[in-house]
Design a protein around this nucleic acid. Sequence first.
DNA 1: CAGGATCCAGTAGGATACTG
DNA 2: CAGTATCCTACTGGATCCTG
Lengths: 150, 150
Amino acid sequence: MATITASERRAVAKREYDAFLAVCPSRRLLERISDKWVALVLAALGGDGPLPGETTVEGPRPLRFSELSRRISGVSQKMLTQTLRALERDGMVTRTVTPTVPVTVSYELTDLGRSLQGVMRGIKEWAESHMEEVLTHRDDYDHRQRGTAD
Amino acid sequence: MATITASERRAVAKREYDAFLAVCPSRRLLERISDKWVALVLAALGGDGPLPGETTVEGPRPLRFSELSRRISGVSQKMLTQTLRALERDGMVTRTVTPTVPVTVSYELTDLGRSLQGVMRGIKEWAESHMEEVLTHRDDYDHRQRGTAD
DNA sequence: CAGGATCCAGTAGGATACTG
DNA sequence: CAGTATCCTACTGGATCCTG
């Protein structure tokens, strides 16, 4: 009998994943992580920038729900919870509950999460550092709308 | 009078962009590029993987609309057009029309687009290479739903 | 504090039909 | 071929209320 373990099958399958294919599971994973909230949560947990009210810039550390909420301005509690749950389920963050009163919950990146954060941070930083260039292109594009036959 | 040019103002503002802030323009740029279709279009134009039907693996080259459409399986013509327009407007792809019959339109990454593709490709590849690990975590998470008091 | 549960508006995005 | 235009549904995600 061919004793093929799950990990063996997976090792083979690994090379087959192709997000260009609509039916490939990696396509759905790509959809999940191609999300602004994911990018922002990972960046926050990854220790990008100082926390509001804090002057010292420190590295990554566990953040509480309320800290994340304050850091990522404009995020609703629903989206934050939802995003954190998904990231936890996918093994990218850990959720730690400390039974104080009231309860304290903190989130932290796992190794897997950190590896993703490496690429996701790139996106947030790209957006910030290329904003001007993009704005310039938009101006050009919008103006050129008529002058085509110039 | 303080003669401050637009580019000077922008050079200063550049360091101010912070996607953590809901009101910051870079937040909206982040939303725009945190999109699966953007990731896939950039990857396709960036020359990731061989084209369907082609055996030789070549680098990036301009792709026609229909080629993109075939490469990115499952994309609707609406989303593809919409994504390409947005990328063109933001200066990340060029659109070239060759007046044959019928018309030939090809898309190509700009330098700006290539710089973004550098980080976006990371995401697609991360999804593909970490699919297994994520699946394992999901199994764990879903099973652990009851056995909490174990 | 850290959510769960609901309700509900806005929009993303698919399907379809038509055009230069 | 490479779109544009329209219709329409389904899901996203915000606002609100409630709980341990």
